[in-house]
Amino acid sequence: MHTFDGQSVPPVPPAARPPRHTTAWLGIQTLVIAVFAGIMALIANGISSYGAERQSMGLLSETSNVMLSDSAGYCFALISITLISLTLIEVAFRKHINYLQYALIGCALGLFYLLLLAMAEFMPFWCAYCIVTLMTAGLITLFVRGITANAKAVTLTAAILAAEYAVILVLIYIGSLALLIGSLLLFVIIALAMYFTLRMRQTAEGELIIK
């Protein structure tokens, strides 16, 4: 920026901040989320093999173990969908969620599987699943409320999380049809994401907004 000595310094508008939500930011954000979700998926995989170990020790029933490893298979999709929808929420509501907060939310989503494993040793799987889902979704919703302080954003986050976990629970229980329904749902989700990117517009400053 050009500075001037002397008297005629024009007042700089105080609201002017460099745009945060640019296309470049969105691209980097997506990549970071994909990589992070991949890492968390590996961790979830590790947790599910730990589940197999617990099963061999006789602490976890076999059906619970199978269901646990089935649900861990959805980890990548779950984390990337959640974080990308948080990104879209960030853009739509003009809020700022930083990378540490994203990472914390991702960790909460990963911790879900460890909690699920621990809980499933004491109760039927669906029961453990519901309790842990309530815990995780509640924690993340409260966290998002703390970050954004926006009732609509909080409701949206809660709804997305609840829908994801409900769909995964159904997919685990329906067995042989799971792949068909799961892949069709993923197709719909990609179509939805495409729709949102089309609704996105760039202002003159390069800031993205969702109409």
């Binding site: 296309t23 691209g27 997506t30 990549l31 042989s176 792949l179 892949s183 197709f187 990609i190 990117t197």
Partner: peptide
């Protein structure tokens, strides 16, 4: 401009093709 996110979504749709193929082929 086609933003990188759009590239990624198109790529994801291309990968999705295989998942769809895999699930349809069972029926």
């Amino acid at each position: 401009q086609i933003p990188l996110l759009n590239y990624f979504l198109i790529g994801a749709a291309l990968v999705m093709f295989y998942l769809l193929l895999l699930s349809f082929v069972e029926f």
